[in-house]
Each structure stands twice: as C-alpha cells, then as structure tokens.
Amino acid sequence: LEELEQFAKTFKQRRIKLGFTQGDVGLAMGKLYGNDFSQTTISRFEALNLSFKNMCKLKPLLEKWLNDAE
C-alpha cells in the first residue's frame, strides 16, 4: 500500500512536470493501450480514492505511460 501511495504521488508530480493534464493521460492511454480512462479515474488514482484492486490494476499501465511519455 505504501508503495502504491508513493507511486501515485510521484506519478502526479512527473505528469505535471511533463505538462500533461489528467484528461491527456486518460486519452493517451486509450490510444496507446486500448484502455480508455476518464480524467476522473486518473484524478481518483492520484488522490488514492480508488479501491486497492483498481489501484493495482492501473499502476502498471500508468508506469508504462509515464516511461513512454518521458
């Protein structure tokens, strides 16, 4: 859980630094990986307001997006 919290915090900082909005991330993930995510979902991930199971599902996809974006 602590690792997920740290990743969510780091993800948000890096996303902002790269100049992407939460909506941008959701759209890009849909185009790149075929998984559409709403701005709300990205927001809830960053705020740790998703279930643990959903957080765990999203984390590898967001890590991949972040690596591709950088």
Rank of each mutant, 00 (worst) to 15 (best):
M29S: 02
S51V: 02
W65Y: 03
F20Q: 09
N35R: 13
A69L: 07
N49E: 15
L18N: 02
F20G: 01
P60M: 07
F7M: 03
L27S: 08
L50Y: 10
T21L: 03
D68M: 10
R44Y: 04
A8T: 13
K17E: 14
A47G: 13
I16G: 03
Q22V: 13
F45A: 01
E3K: 05
K57A: 10
G23K: 15
F37A: 07
A8S: 06
L62T: 02
L61C: 04
F11K: 00
L66S: 04
T10C: 09
V25R: 02
T41Y: 08
Q13H: 14
L62F: 11
E63S: 06
L58G: 01
T41V: 10
D68I: 08
L1C: 07
L48T: 13
L18V: 04
L32F: 04
E5I: 06
G34A: 10
F52I: 14
G30S: 11
E63P: 01
T41K: 14
D36V: 10
T21Y: 01
L61T: 11
K9P: 02
E5K: 11
K57T: 13
A8H: 02
G30N: 05
L27G: 07
D68F: 12
L50W: 04
I42F: 01
L50E: 09
S43I: 07
L58P: 01
T21I: 01
P60D: 09
T10K: 12
P60Q: 06
L48S: 12
F20S: 04
G23N: 14
L62N: 00
L48W: 05
F20I: 15
A28S: 09
K57C: 13
R15T: 00
L61V: 12
L4V: 04
E3R: 03
G26A: 10
D68Q: 13
L18R: 05
V25F: 02
A28T: 12
K59F: 05
Q22H: 05
M29Q: 02
Q6A: 14
G26S: 14
R14P: 00
K53G: 11
N54G: 11
N54Q: 10
S38Q: 10
E3S: 06
K9L: 07
Q39E: 14
L50N: 02
R44Q: 15
L18M: 07
L66Y: 05
E63W: 07
I16M: 13
K31C: 05
K9C: 06
N49C: 06
L61H: 14
F20H: 09
F52W: 13
D68V: 09
K31Q: 10
A8D: 00
L48P: 02
T40H: 10
Q39R: 13
M55Q: 10
S43F: 06
I42S: 00
K64T: 09
A28D: 07
S43D: 04
Q6Y: 10
K59D: 01
L1W: 11
K17M: 12
D68N: 13
F45P: 00
L66K: 02
N54D: 15
T10S: 10
T21C: 08
G23I: 11
V25C: 05
E46A: 00
L66F: 03
R15F: 01
A69K: 13
Q13Y: 14
R14K: 13
F37V: 15
L1Y: 15
I42H: 00
E3V: 05
D36Q: 10
Q6P: 03
G34S: 06
E5S: 09
F45C: 02
G30E: 11
S51G: 14
F45R: 00
Q6D: 06
